[in-house]
């Protein structure tokens, strides 16, 4: 019990991650808008499908806006609510100088603000008399309000798959920590030549390979939902795949040498060499190349709008929990390998 507190901690953290990660609902959002293109100088009906929304029960405080620029937009002149998830808004669009992709806002007292960026394209009229008024009105100062309570943010395209952040991203973080520990033990082996460091290094690296494969699998499922394909030519995916190949080669190398001392020595050297080769793969090239992943173009993905505080409350425990689980897997492997070495020695 004294030595296994971290196993219990890891399991508890993962239980927390699984329960909260899957059970906490998303904030209200807008799934679908139709039509997506309307004409300026016309009165148009737009039907809106909400997600986790309360249109019917909050009809009295319901407001729908098409936001044109930072201060002004069109408010729906009339609303017809067909249930909690469905409403039709009528807009009286005036003259617009340019074709605009307007942001759609649905506000009510209970749900706060649901946003859909570039929801409706307003085509400017071709022959526009100068006298037609724009009919724009100023947005109320309290347009953006968030729903009270503990909810994960709603992002269009991601929808419910935003929960995969706790598994896909956290798996990569945990994998990297495990690889670092493996690297440390490899260096220790080269310094001391003690067999237990070799066992530790290989066990942590194997656990990291497992996590990498799981990271690829969860990412592939996520890509299928958001980008529409299981695999894309995106730079991060391919770099991750190469990393897996490098560490698979590490496993093959270990399997290819019978002599234990030689195996320890060579695999420790290859591990350090592979880790150095991996750094440009995972940390330099993706930063310099365009990627479909969030946060591309120079900055890491952690922070900003994509990871708000409610997500963080599950995401950080997920990293720690997965790391502790990986350590557990590694220690089991260490014990098996140590017993195997002992058996070899007693057989001799």
């Amino acid at each position: 019990m004294k030595y296994s507190w971290w196993k219990i901690l890891g399991v508890l953290l993962l239980l927390y991650v699984f329960t909260f990660g899957f059970l906490v609902p998303l904030k209200p959002g807008i799934i679908a808008v139709s039509p997506v293109s309307i004409e300026a100088n016309h009165v148009s009906n737009i039907s809106i499908t909400g997600y986790n929304s309360n249109y019917q029960s909050q009809e009295s405080s319901l407001q729908v806006w098409l936001k044109i620029d930072s201060t002004s937009g069109y408010q729906a002149t009339s609303l017809r609510v067909n249930g909690e998830r469905q409403l039709t808004a009528t807009f009286d669009i005036g003259a617009l100088p340019d074709t605009t992709e307007a942001l759609l806002l649905v506000v009510n007292a209970e749900d706060g603000t649901a946003i859909r960026p570039r929801a409706v394209k307003i085509n400017s009229a071709e022959h526009q008399p100068a006298s037609v008024p724009s009919k724009l009105s100023a947005l109320p100062s309290k347009t953006f309000q968030t729903k009270a309570g503990f909810y994960f943010p709603y992002r269009s395209i991601l929808d419910e798959t935003i929960r995969n952040t706790f598994f896909h991203v956290a798996l990569w973080m945990a994998m990297f920590v495990l690889l670092l520990i493996g690297l440390y033990h490899s260096i220790q082996y080269l310094r001391t030549k003690r067999i237990e460091y070799d066992i530790k290094a290989s066990s942590y690296s194997y656990a990291a390979i497992l996590y990498g494969l799981l990271g690829l699998a969860t990412g592939s499922v996520w890509a299928r939902y958001t980008w529409g394909t299981w695999w894309t030519p995106d730079v991060k995916l391919n770099m991750a795949a190469i990393t897996m190949l490098i560490y698979a080669a590490y496993a093959v190398l270990r399997a290819g040498i019978d002599d234990i001392d030689k195996r320890s020595q060579l695999s420790a050297i290859y591990n350090i060499f592979a880790f150095a080769a991996m750094i440009p793969l995972l940390f330099v090239i993706p930063r310099l190349t365009d990627s479909l992943h969030p946060g591309n173009g120079g900055n890491p993905a952690l922070g900003g709008e994509d990871l708000d505080n409610t997500l963080r409350m599950v995401f950080y425990p997920a990293i720690i929990g997965l790391f502790l689980l990986g350590r557990w897997i590694a220690t089991l492997n260490i014990r098996i390998e140590t017993l195997r070495i002992h058996k070899l020695q007693s057989d001799l």
Partner: peptide, 19 residues
């Protein structure tokens, strides 16, 4: 140092060379 050194060079070297 391994048994099939030629195959092993390809296995170890090819992933490393990709970047």
């Amino acid at each position: 140092h391994t048994k099939q050194s030629n195959t092993m060079t390809s296995i170890l070297g090819l992933p490393l060379i990709i970047p």
